[in-house]
């Protein structure tokens, strides 16, 4: 059972974050990013950010906003590196939407790769095992 008493709150908790919104044009991913920053600042641990549905677009390394605009894709990479967070795409959701890793490119005879190497392609099982391990799942 997830701990739920007030006394626990001073301790570190484990979060898994699920992102279902795209890297641009959706509020969900920005909000998830702010939540992660705030949780880490409080000393909590985020072991995984799982990208499902349109969330897989966050992995697109060809994301290219103007220089005076926030680059959320890049922000996810930096956050993951700084805090040792696994960025995991649902592979089937990603393939359907044209987000492909080097391996997917080879396996499907495609021309190019757009999934940043810091994002791993995983199955939905990674979300489930992540939920089992975490104190809280927060979806966006």
């Amino acid at each position: 059972m997830a701990p739920n008493s007030g006394a626990f709150l001073s301790f570190m908790s484990q979060f898994i974050i699920q992102v279902n919104g795209s890297v641009y044009g959706s509020f969900a991913s920005v909000s998830a990013f702010h939540f992660c920053q705030a949780a880490l600042a409080q000393g909590h641990r985020i072991h995984k950010v799982f990208f499902y549905q349109d969330g897989v677009f966050n992995a697109n390394q060809l994301t290219c906003p103007a220089s005076d605009e926030p680059n959320l894709h890049q922000q996810w990479l930096t956050l993951a590196t700084d805090h040792n967070i696994a960025l995991v795409n649902c592979v089937s959701a990603a393939l359907r939407r044209g987000i492909v890793s080097a391996q997917d490119t080879t396996e499907n005879g495609l021309q190019s790769v757009n999934c940043a190497p810091q994002f791993t392609m995983g199955g939905l099982g990674e979300l489930i095992t992540g939920i089992e391990k975490a104190d809280r799942l927060i979806s966006f």
Binding site: A2, N4, G6, F8, L9, S13, F15, H34, F35, Q37, A38, A39, A41, Q42, H44, D135, R136, L137, I138, S139, F140
Partner: peptide, 18 residues
């Protein structure tokens, strides 16, 4: 609340339903 408050709330409640 701010995002820090959101984090605290998410732990005070038994779960968050999005």
């Amino acid at each position: 609340i701010d995002y820090a408050g959101f984090v605290s709330l998410s732990l005070q409640f038994s779960k968050v339903i999005t």
